[in-house]
Amino acid sequence: MMQQLIMAGGTIVVGVFGCVAYFFAANLILDRIYPPRGPRAGPNIARASAIRPWLFLLPAILLLGIYLVYPVFVSIWLSLRDASGESFVGLANYEWLMNDGKFRESIRNNFLWLLVVPAASTFVGLIAAALTDRIAWGNFAKALIFMPMAISFVGASVIWKFIYDYRGEGREEIGLLNAVIEALGGTEQTWLAIPFWNNFFLMAVLIWIQTGFAMVILSAALRGIPEETVEAAILDGASPLQIFLKIKVPQIWGTIAVVWTTITILVLKVFDIVLAMTNGQWGTQVLANLMFDWMFRGNDAGRASAVALVIMILVTPIMIWNIVNARKETR
């Protein structure tokens, strides 16, 4: 155990010093090869400053290339091969996907998640931002609503499993939801096993986590609205609700879109909640967990890669939109 800590500490030292040493040495060598003084100082400086950016970028490009770009191409290649990756099977994996019940279920559920979670998180986040900005203890309230952001998806799943717990009739309910329902005179339910609706109980967990994120960003955007526009509306006799809906919200559409897309991407990648709470049973499977299933339990690299590529394809429009926006800004 001690050994492990020493190893971790050693890695930090080696990693940090390695990085510093690399950058330092690379610069030094570059200056040796093209010294920025003497008779050829001019062309040397020009040449050195053409190379230097690439020295600064090299470690990052290597890591990104190996860990994020290369796998995209290998995944495409793997998705065209069989379970062990040994022989070429053409589009058989995709054909299988189209006819697989679990895949269809996953697509349907992912669609529901994409529809509900970003919308609900952004909407509740916007309301929370608008409300907390008006009161003295708003920052304290914000910190508490924001807190679930720090909790892991698995940890959040444990928390919510406890809320959805079901004991059965005649026994005292220890799950908060069932206890409340019982107190209000309803009947207890096995929330996570109700077909179709259980998806929404899983989504609640992610909404609970993401609302704080939306709130923090939207609150900053609301505060950045020029005061003159609000003052003008007040002089014209607009009610607080009108000011919020017709003056403030239209001015932060850009931010709302950013929050929305950020959560959308997260939704496509989230699998921990489904894995930990239902493991895809009772009709709650989603793509990310289906992929995980085929990778670990199915041991089928071909099918797993095909599912992963479907996720990639779903993400691509947002990716392009982000790139287009980023290019507008850098110009």
Partner: peptide, 17 residues
């Protein structure tokens, strides 16, 4: 632009390779 694009690449894709 590439960095912005890589921000959203799903990790699922990277696991097996």
């Amino acid at each position: 632009a590439a960095v912005v694009g890589l921000l959203v690449v799903p990790l699922q894709l990277a696991l097996i390779p």
